[in-house]
Amino acid sequence: MEPMAHDFFTPQPIMGTRAYYLRNILHDWGDEKCLIILLNKAAAMKPWYSKVLVNEFAIFRPRPLCLLGAIERAEKQWRELLTTAGLQIERIWTAEPESQSIIEARLAGPGVDDGEST
């Protein structure tokens, strides 16, 4: 993994990498801005190869937490946001309740559930 500075509101300059890692970024933005960020990542992804790894809280409370201008989203909210960006969650990794998670997502599309690859 190589960290790189990048304005995530502009198109992703590196195309087709194995993973795009976003740590503690999306909780600072509302859904509209997050959608721009995620759409830029999705446009750079290679189907059946690239993943987006979102390192944020995926809380299991019925309502999200808002604190100091940040929003901690519930799992359902993550699913809705990522789906809107054309991504499908494969797995949410959480070590213990109410701790940060890794949300692993890939491009959604025809045949994603049947194991076929292109």
Rank of each mutant, 00 (worst) to 15 (best):
P11F: 13
I36M: 06
R106H: 13
E116Q: 12
P13Y: 13
W48V: 00
G115V: 04
T10I: 01
Y20H: 10
P11V: 10
T10W: 02
C34N: 15
Y49F: 15
I71E: 05
A70W: 01
D113N: 08
I25P: 01
I37W: 11
F60E: 08
F9L: 13
R91F: 10
L87F: 02
V112K: 05
A19Q: 12
P47S: 10
W78F: 07
P13W: 14
L107P: 02
R18G: 03
S50L: 02
P3F: 06
P11I: 10
C66K: 11
P3E: 15
L53T: 03
A95F: 05
T94G: 09
A85C: 07
S99P: 00
L39C: 12
P97S: 03
T83K: 03
M15R: 12
R63T: 11
A19T: 13
G30E: 15
Y49M: 10
I37L: 15
E56T: 04
R91W: 06
I37E: 14
S50W: 05
R73F: 08
A44R: 01
I89M: 06
K33G: 02
L35H: 12
E104L: 07
E80R: 13
K46H: 09
Q77K: 05
L82C: 07
W78G: 07
I92W: 00
A70R: 15
G111T: 05
L22Y: 07
V54Q: 00
E96H: 04
E75S: 02
I92L: 03
M1E: 05
P110G: 09
E98F: 13
P97Y: 01
P3L: 06
V52W: 01
L68H: 15
A70I: 05
T83N: 06
A74Y: 01
E104F: 00
I37T: 13
E116V: 14
A44C: 02
E2R: 15
Y21M: 07
M4T: 11
L107K: 15
I102F: 02
G111R: 09
R63Q: 09
M45F: 05
A85Y: 07
F9V: 03
